[in-house]
Nucleic acid binder design. Structure first.
Lengths: 188, 188
DNA sequence: CCCATTCTTGAACGATCATTCAATAAGGAG
DNA sequence: CTCCTTATTGAATGATCGTTCAAGAATGGG
């Protein structure tokens, strides 16, 4: 009942996320959020409570989207190893934009359980889909059959982070591709 | 001439660095620096100009120390591959403390040339010593002789970042060690 | 010993921060 | 249509931010 919002919350959250991706939490002011989200200040506080609430919503949104994208990319290839390659290729392609997961890890570590819960939930999901891809790639003879699957999957996921760090530090895409290639080599 | 400082600049810089390592630039206030460095506010501003000057000094100090440590670790082993392993082992051991290089990359990207210059100088130094170790390891038959040495060295360095990201995200040290092992496997 | 210079101390500065108040506008339920 | 609830608007809040001013303390050169 009563008056409905003039903006769509999910769109506003997506816009907030792109600000946080570029400037981090502390580097983003409430004014920057108001400008980027295109909503009034009071609407922001009514909807999200405070700046921290906006950040949590943005991180949740980002992690969910990113996980879905990884899962889809892994599934859209016939051979599992090609799905893994495609996942890295996508990471390289989009590496010019900051990663909110990486940003929140580096900025806050494990200090806030609210954040670690969001990240860990996505982390477990990602581990599952990657681990599944590793299994299939092993069965298809493209990866070694003797490796610890959890550690191998964690290694692949950590390589995603390393590509994004390298990109944000200014590395050329040839170097990013090399990281992906060497990473897969490590599991062969 | 005139009155000498009551504090040692390098020690103060080291203390500042440890604050920035934990909280980043924007997450660190001048008051936090004053408390941690154990000097007066005006002494801070007289010596470093502003908060940004403290950060530059801290990053420079940190990068220099880190580079030296990596070089020493790489040199102290008889076989080059053991030096590389020792380098990773050291990174794993110290992974509970944040990395200022990683922090500055993630927080600022390439926005400030003052920072990229500091990082790139250390990056080139690190590339040299790692590349040298790779060469020797190749000559000693412990790494493949057919890989692009620059890309391989960049891969090793990026793996250091990935270990630190994983650690800050809460990964157990068994996972960190696995990252190091798989990384070396990729170059074999 | 004394003066010029620099360091330290402690209070203060305006600016910006996140957040909220008060008032107006607008849609849905009855 | 009317009323209750909620959204929007715009100004204002106190707190904290980075930075500086003013005054006193201390040191080395002459």
């Amino acid at each position: 009942m009563a008056r409905p919002k003039e903006f769509e919350v999910e769109i506003a959250v997506a816009k907030a996320a792109s600000v946080f991706r570029e400037h981090g939490y502390e580097g983003t002011s409430a004014q920057m959020l108001v400008d980027a989200m295109g909503i009034g200040r009071q609407s922001l506080y009514d909807t999200f409570g405070d700046k921290w609430g906006v950040y949590r919503a943005a991180l949740t949104h980002y992690c969910h989207n990113e996980c879905s994208a990884h899962r889809d990319t892994l599934h859209h290839a016939e051979r599992a190893i090609d799905g893994i390659r495609a996942m890295f290729a996508r990471v390289v392609e989009r590496s010019s934009e900051g990663c909110l997961g990486l940003g929140s890890i580096v900025e806050f570590g494990c200090r806030h359980s609210e954040l670690t819960e969001i990240r860990d939930r996505s982390g477990r999901f990602l581990m599952q889909v990657v681990s599944d891809a590793v299994s299939r790639a092993q069965a298809e003879g493209d990866l070694s059959g003797e490796l610890n699957r959890d550690h191998a999957s964690g290694f692949l996921i950590s390589a995603i982070a390393s590509i994004r760090v390298a990109a944000r530090g200014g590395a050329p895409s040839s170097q990013l591709k090399a990281i992906a290639d060497f990473t897969i080599r490590g599991l062969r």
